[in-house]
Nucleic acid binder design. Structure first.
Lengths: 178, 178
DNA sequence: CGGCCGCTGTCCATTTCCGGACAGCGGCGG
DNA sequence: CCGCCGCTGTCCGGAAATGGACAGCGGCCG
């Protein structure tokens, strides 16, 4: 499936520069001048590069953090990379604690930017794949594998930890090919 | 069970000040002048406040990041809060990406410090509790609860996601009291 | 050397679970 | 207003799973 990035900044020159830098990072690179309607299309993207301020004169990053929160609520698996000119340590720590996967200072260097967005897209893919693993059979298989590893193949202990009898665990191990 | 914090800094005055500030945050507050042997006693603590530099003149935080990595390897559930005087955005972002739960700049204010370590201890407790939930019944119950929440009580969709038929899901919901 | 312990893999009478089918309900669109 | 759709909760003949019991093995200790 083709990958898609979105870059959100109120400055058209920044959008152009970032889109150029990231042109080869994804199959499609979209741009937006503001965060309006982002939450509704969160699932269309594999990563978003999001500015923290959208109004000339704003510097505190509150708009970006708010948008980040709404993106995380809409699609928790989506990786968001934040960027700003004015950020300090406190803002960076806040951003990562609220779910951003990276933080980029303007003016950026292209190679670290491409790397950051590449890593973000890979993380989104991984999260989305594992988020699909709600299937009980898959969860059971992983739990059994984990228990066997934890107890180094001791089926008695693993069964006890899993809340199963040994014959029951044997049957499930066979069913899962473990 | 009594809670325990550890503060690691090469400056005895910093240790004393931080220990005083955090005296009521945990039942026991230990201090250490360096990171030696930390990994071996990671499971004795509920959170660690860790300096990033341990040698006079060092400023790059590499030692702290390295110690963080070793603590995470020893006990992934343990929450580590990093502190430094010299940190910039890049260091803060690096620290959080490598698993620190918060980042504190010196000189700190006591109230945010206490809050950060309190939140860190709570997170460690939550992570340690959820790590213990290997019991298949408990995992199944949580997965079903998650699916029902995700699909807003729609049993048909939740059953499909879980890989169950609707009657099967009804039976398990009843068994788990959901 | 022998007994004990804690593990192994498997058996089978009994119990539990399965899922297609049924009847019903509320919302929506023609 | 009616038909359709997608959901709801429940049923029951048949299929699958259960777990106490059995036999066996390797390591350890007296």
């Amino acid at each position: 499936m083709p990958s898609a990035l979105l870059i959100v900044d109120d400055d058209p020159d920044v959008l152009k520069a970032a889109a150029t830098a990231l042109a080869r990072a994804a199959d499609r690179v979209d741009t937006a001048l503001g965060p309006e309607g982002l939450a509704e299309k969160a699932d269309l993207y594999d990563a978003i590069l999001l500015d923290m301020n959208f109004v000339a004169g704003d510097r505190d990053g509150a708009a970006g953090l708010d948008t980040l929160d709404r993106l995380q609520a809409a699609d928790p698996a989506l990786s968001v990379v934040l960027m700003t000119t004015y950020g300090g340590v406190v803002l960076a720590v806040q951003a990562l604690k609220r779910g951003a996967v990276d933080f980029v200072l303007k003016p950026w260097r292209n190679e670290p930017l491409v790397q950051a967005l590449g890593a973000a897209m890979a993380l989104t893919a991984e999260r989305r794949a594992s988020g699909k693993a709600l299937n009980l059979d898959e969860l059971e298989k992983r739990a059994i594998a984990r228990a066997l590893k934890l107890y180094e193949g001791n089926v008695s202990h693993a069964a006890a930890a899993l809340g199963l009898t040994r014959p029951a665990l044997y049957r499930r191990m066979e069913r899962h090919g473990l």
